[in-house]
Write a protein that binds this DNA or RNA. Structure first.
Lengths: 128, 128, 128, 128
DNA sequence: GTGGTCTAGACCACG
DNA sequence: GTGGTCTAGACCACC
């Protein structure tokens, strides 16, 4: 449950939380069945109010990543292996498609994009 | 000067305008030196108020894409060929880098990304 | 957060606000980290609309003097001491250079300018 | 009658013309009595419309730098030596006083300003 | 309550 | 007629 917020990113806090949780679920870093901490605890740790955490949790539940039951807390939904692969792939396509289109629109070639992808993968550190 | 606004996109109007103009400048669709129509005309055509158009124009000017002078209108700044290539490349990197990082974070491999890129380029039509 | 507008100055309101805020940040009168009042409050106090205040805020943010986040307000960005000195010096050079050139152009000598500077510093009160 | 316009300076054209003419009169580069070219000629040379030239001429006449008489054109008014010195000094004070105040407001010391003045005078080329 | 974006007007300096 | 600035409203996402 490592979450890092960057206030200057422009992204809403609840979205940052949501994205990092899904990323950790899809990457396998969080195992299905794992119990998530109470939202108040998360809020305290992140030093934000409960509201954005709750918003993130709601979206996670709507999309079937987590299941919450009153009094028993929240845990990561079990996802079959093929389901994870599908979702991961869907997510990747969703993330990239628009931006590849944007690159094409300004005249960037396929090869240039692939080159950028390769360079990104050769760096060990994540871009800030 | 073709601009298409999609109100449902969630993106602010001024951003949509800004992005489409820069795209057209970087792709060469708008030649350097071209005179842009008055902001009020653009606003009328797009059926929006002057404000978002002006906001887009301001950002374009700050970034050196256009030059405006009161009473004489606005025209596309002359950019040397290498300058266009640099900016285009910068733009592409800026667009893609975060998303590639996001893909890596959810465990997508380099090859999967390249595959998505290839598929995107094999489709002739732009995604909506 | 003392701001005084002079409507007869010819300077746009947003510029007056911008300049006075930067001056107070650079002079140390406003401490880094200080929370600025909401733009609507500032607008009310100054008896202007929100627009010029926001315009000033935008320029301040673009130049790194303040950081704003929707829902959480605006605060003065932390600037290291040397950064403040650099910016202050830059600002002074920017302010003076053109006008010194103008003085030279009309045949004013270095000594005359220095004399004017000295006289300005011997007066305690600010010129209107 | 050398005038150089910089369209990107933000300054209105008529002001640029006005300032350069006064500078040349005060610096002695244009002798009293000299006949100025017709505004249409000036406009043609500068590749601007007659309007800003006329505006500059009007301001020059209002301030007594030139005298125009219908049918006989425009010439530089005779100014006694002491009058030139006075005007030059007034101009210098007017130009500098506000900006020195601005520098003081951001905490720049007298010595720093003098240093900037000296550096400006040690450069041979005028700042762009 | 906070900033972000937008509408529909208006007046001004400039060319 | 051009852009620059401003007013007085409004709605929205976010906290």
């Amino acid at each position: 449950m490592d979450i890092v917020l960057s206030p200057s990113s422009g992204k809403p806090i609840y979205l940052q939380i949501y994205e990092q949780i899904t990323a950790q679920i899809l990457s396998g870093k969080i195992e299905p069945g794992t119990r998530l901490p109470p939202i108040r605890t998360v809020a305290l740790n992140l030093r934000v109010s409960v509201i954005p955490v709750k918003q993130a949790w709601e979206q996670l539940e709507r999309e079937g990543f987590i299941t919450t039951s009153a009094g028993r807390g929240t845990s990561v939904a079990p996802l079959a292996g093929h389901e994870i692969r599908t979702r991961r792939s869907d997510a990747a396509v969703g993330i990239l498609v628009r931006d590849i289109a944007a690159c094409r629109a300004i005249g960037v070639s396929r090869d240039e994009i692939v080159e950028i992808v390769n360079q990104a993968f050769n760096r060990n550190t994540e871009p800030e």
